[in-house]
């Protein structure tokens, strides 16, 4: 979904893009056992809350970096953090 939004990519192209960036097969994107490990290893958030896990905006910022896309909320809050006093 992020890549559809950021790059207007159709679903097959978007899935291939994400799979390449995450280093998984396209078929694994929908495999919860694989993706739980991937999400955990990359620390990009998981449905189940765990200590040390990135959540919310932190996870989103890591996803933007990993997928090399712009996420409006990440850009917005980064701008607020970096703003001059």
């Amino acid at each position: 979904m992020r890549v559809e939004l950021a790059k207007k990519m159709r679903i097959d192209e978007a899935k291939a893009y994400v799979a390449e960036k995450l280093g998984v097969e396209v078929s694994e994107l929908n495999d919860v056992s694989v993706m739980r490990e991937v999400r955990n290893d990359l620390n990009i958030g998981e449905p189940n809350a765990r200590p040390e896990n990135a959540f919310g905006l932190i996870a989103k910022a890591r996803i933007a970096k990993l997928l090399d896309i712009k996420i409006p909320s990440v850009e917005k809050f980064r701008g607020m953090i970096d703003a001059e006093f």
Binding site: M1, L5, I44, F55, G56, A59, I63, I71, F77
Partner: peptide
């Protein structure tokens, strides 16, 4: 909501 969510909002 944006601060606390990961999925596109």
């Amino acid at each position: 909501a944006e601060l606390n969510s990961i999925i596109p909002l």
